[in-house]
């Protein structure tokens, strides 16, 4: 571990731990910023003071804040996210049953987006400042600027209300196997979630390819007579894909944001819908558990992205302190 790369790994890991620590602080602070406290939110405005006091005692909310935070942290370290107030299940098991479905939704739509966006971006870079570039650029900006729920509404109006082609609601009881056995229910949610991702990734691919097209190695490859198809398809594409793939790691929080909207609109029984319903019923253990999990996924995603870039690109690696 004496190598610069080893130090880089250690430093990034330490940073990730600090970030997760701050996230627990923010999440804990959020819980205690509630007007009237958690007890009011759960027991309602009608609850008597005695009921509130006994709820606070049972939950440990009557202890000093640092003690409560310590208890919260030690529970987390034992992988205990608490118990839902409303659903009478542990938050861990609720998330465990919903997470795979959300991962199918986000995974499939990211894969679709990637397959569409990368060729689009490369095509734009080659045709820079020509008609195709302007048309796709405009499309990408419009795709980015469209609120996900507006896009979902348009798709539902066209493909469900008018054409009766695709279902607009996922049966709430569907488990993972049933989802995969009825792919038609996945089409609209996946497409809705893929559009803004295509917008972002095609722009990003375009700029990565443009950067590489102006590099010395591209000029060398052209000068030695390599056909343009080979220069772009092999040399440039390979070097451009590294930052684009790394971008997937940084994209985790955006993907989850899209998922919460899409799941609510299409009644998709994933983690986003779990969070949405928990927000409506003030089910705070579920809210905090989901936020913490997403934050962990985000930190892990950007850590992996950094490592992937350092491993794949010697120029990045040599720049490490």
């Amino acid at each position: 571990m004496r190598s610069p790369f080893g130090w880089f790994l250690l430093k990034r890991l330490a940073q990730a731990v600090v970030v997760v620590f701050f996230v627990t602080l923010i999440v804990f602070g959020l819980l205690h910023a509630l007007p009237g406290g958690v007890a009011r939110g759960i027991l309602g405005a009608q609850a008597s003071n005695a009921e509130i006091a006994s709820f606070n005692r049972a939950q440990g909310f009557d202890k000093p804040l640092p003690v409560q935070y310590w208890m919260y942290l030690s529970r987390l370290l034992h992988a205990n996210l608490g118990t839902s107030y409303k659903l009478n299940q542990s938050v861990g098991s609720l998330i465990a049953s919903r997470l795979p479905r959300t991962l199918v939704l986000t995974g499939v739509s990211t894969a679709v987006a990637f397959v569409v966006a990368v060729p689009l971006g490369v095509w734009q870079a080659i045709r820079r400042r020509r008609l195709a570039d302007y048309v796709i650029t405009t499309g990408a900006f419009v795709g980015y600027a469209t609120p996900v729920y507006f896009l979902a509404l348009l798709l539902v109006i066209v493909f469900n209300a008018d054409l009766h082609l695709l279902p607009s609601q996922v049966p709430g009881t569907y488990n993972l196997g049933q989802l995969l056995a009825h792919p038609s229910v996945l089409v609209l949610p996946v497409v809705t979630l893929a559009v803004p991702t295509i917008a972002v990734f095609s722009r990003y691919t375009r700029s990565a390819v443009l950067d590489n097209l102006s590099e010395d190695y591209t000029r060398t490859a052209r000068a030695k007579g390599a056909p343009e198809r080979r220069v772009v398809g092999i040399h440039v594409l390979r070097n451009s894909l590294t930052p684009v793939i790394a971008m997937l790691g940084y994209y985790v929080p955006v993907m989850f944001s899209g998922a919460i909207v899409v799941e609510e609109i299409f009644n998709f029984p994933g983690m986003g819908l779990l969070f949405w319903n928990a927000a409506q019923t003030s089910d705070y253990p579920v809210l905090l558990g989901v936020i913490l999990l997403i934050a962990l996924a985000t930190v892990t995603g950007s850590l992996l992205a950094d490592i992937a870039q350092a491993v794949a690109d010697p120029r990045v690696r040599s720049g490490l302190k």
Partner: peptide, 22 residues
């Protein structure tokens, strides 16, 4: 909510890179 559709300058930091690499 989002990483922008912009080019590298904006997208990478927008989505959460490390100070060193991104």
């Amino acid at each position: 909510t989002t990483g922008g559709p912009g080019t590298g300058d904006r997208s990478v930091p927008a989505a959460g890179s490390s100070p060193e690499l991104g």
